[in-house]
């Protein structure tokens, strides 16, 4: 079940689909912009259903109030099959930053489900010709 009750505070651009334009013989990068419209600092971390297929930089961090950051999602080369629709998904999990962050690992571990917010994105592969 969807554990998160809080509405995602960050604005994602793109909001739902990460588009990767081939050819896929080399690394293909999609950009994901995270904007923080709130007056609080927000911690985020990126998760995916296919961790070995992508490099994500940065894959976690903190966004100041009113600030935004760009994330590079780099799809590693693979043998593209036009008939195989990508089932890869990404999740941007967020939490309002505690006043003092001593240990981010512990912060995420101890976070209660109703403090967590998340957004899911699909991956869409396109060939230049399509």
């Amino acid at each position: 079940a969807n554990m998160s009750k809080l509405e995602q505070i960050l604005i994602l651009d793109p909001p739902t689909d990460l588009k990767f334009k081939g050819p896929f013989t080399d690394v293909v990068t999609a950009n994901l912009k995270l904007m923080n419209p709130s007056d609080k600092r927000v911690c985020f971390k990126v998760k995916t259903t296919a961790p070995r297929r992508y490099c994500v930089r940065p894959n976690s961090g903190t966004i100041d109030p009113g600030a935004s950051i760009n994330i590079s999602v780099m799809l590693q080369p693979f043998d593209y099959d036009p008939n195989e629709k990508s089932k890869h998904k990404f999740m941007v999990q967020t939490i309002f930053a505690p006043t003092t962050i001593t240990d981010t690992e512990a912060m995420w571990k101890d976070a209660k489900p109703d403090e967590l917010m998340d957004s899911k994105l699909r991956c869409v592969f396109e060939l230049p010709s399509e």
Partner: peptide, 14 residues
């Protein structure tokens, strides 16, 4: 949305 997907921490390098 009930999602049956398993999510893992994304890596900053493979």
């Amino acid at each position: 949305i009930l999602s049956e997907d398993d999510f893992y921490d994304a890596l900053s390098q493979t």
